[in-house]
Amino acid sequence: ETGKELVLALYDYQEKSPREVTMKKGDILTLLNSTNKDWWKVEVNDRQGFVPAAYVKKL
C-alpha cells in the first residue's frame, strides 16, 4: 500500500509485555508511529505493538 513506511528489523526482539511484538532480524515491518524516540509502534502479521527504536531502521 502506498503511504506506508517500512522498517527493517536489525536484531531479534522477544516481546516482554502484551503491548510489544516479537520480530526476527531481517523482518520488514510496517511503521505506524515513530514519535517516541525509544519505542516505535509497528504492525507485523496483523498484530500491532511496540519495538525498541534502536532495533529497527527506516527503509
Score class of each variant (00 low, 15 high):
residue 51 V to P: 00
residue 39 W to V: 03
residue 56 V to M: 05
residue 42 V to Q: 00
residue 29 L to W: 03
residue 5 E to S: 12
residue 45 N to T: 09
residue 21 V to S: 02
residue 49 G to P: 00
residue 25 K to D: 02
residue 34 S to W: 08
residue 48 Q to Y: 07
residue 2 T to Y: 15
residue 44 V to F: 15
residue 1 E to V: 13
residue 37 K to P: 13
residue 32 L to V: 13
residue 43 E to C: 11
residue 56 V to F: 05
residue 33 N to L: 09
residue 48 Q to D: 06
residue 23 M to Q: 02
residue 37 K to E: 10
residue 54 A to F: 08
residue 5 E to Q: 13
residue 13 Y to W: 12
residue 36 N to T: 06
residue 52 P to V: 02
residue 53 A to N: 03
residue 13 Y to Q: 00
residue 1 E to W: 05
residue 6 L to H: 10
residue 37 K to L: 09
residue 32 L to Y: 04
residue 47 R to F: 06
residue 46 D to E: 11
residue 51 V to S: 00
residue 20 E to P: 05
residue 21 V to Q: 03
residue 45 N to Y: 12
residue 3 G to P: 14
residue 57 K to W: 10
residue 19 R to M: 14
residue 31 L to V: 07
residue 13 Y to C: 02
residue 10 L to I: 11
residue 50 F to Q: 03
residue 55 Y to A: 11
residue 33 N to P: 03
residue 37 K to Y: 08
residue 15 E to F: 06
residue 4 K to G: 10
residue 23 M to L: 08
residue 38 D to M: 13
residue 30 T to A: 10
residue 54 A to R: 14
residue 23 M to W: 02
residue 59 L to Y: 09
residue 13 Y to H: 04
residue 1 E to Y: 05
residue 55 Y to L: 12
residue 21 V to H: 04
residue 6 L to R: 10
residue 19 R to L: 15
residue 52 P to S: 01
residue 5 E to V: 13
residue 56 V to R: 00
residue 13 Y to I: 01
residue 30 T to W: 13
residue 4 K to N: 10
residue 58 K to H: 09
residue 7 V to Y: 09
residue 55 Y to T: 07
residue 49 G to Q: 02
residue 31 L to P: 00
residue 2 T to F: 13
residue 37 K to I: 10
residue 26 G to N: 07
residue 43 E to P: 00
residue 4 K to E: 09
residue 1 E to H: 13
residue 46 D to G: 15
residue 53 A to G: 04
residue 9 A to I: 02
residue 55 Y to M: 13
residue 59 L to K: 04
residue 37 K to F: 08
residue 24 K to M: 09
residue 55 Y to N: 05
residue 21 V to G: 02
residue 18 P to H: 10
residue 35 T to P: 04
residue 19 R to A: 12
residue 4 K to D: 08
residue 18 P to G: 09
residue 34 S to F: 07
residue 10 L to D: 02
residue 25 K to E: 07
residue 39 W to I: 02
residue 15 E to H: 09
residue 30 T to I: 15
residue 28 I to N: 03
residue 8 L to H: 04
residue 7 V to G: 12
residue 25 K to L: 05
residue 3 G to F: 14
residue 35 T to M: 11
residue 19 R to Y: 14
residue 4 K to F: 12
residue 25 K to S: 07
residue 3 G to E: 14
residue 4 K to Q: 11
residue 36 N to K: 08
residue 25 K to R: 11
residue 6 L to F: 15
residue 30 T to L: 13
residue 39 W to Y: 07
residue 11 Y to E: 09
residue 21 V to D: 01
residue 27 D to R: 02
residue 8 L to E: 14
residue 45 N to S: 10
residue 41 K to Q: 12
residue 59 L to Q: 06
residue 34 S to T: 10
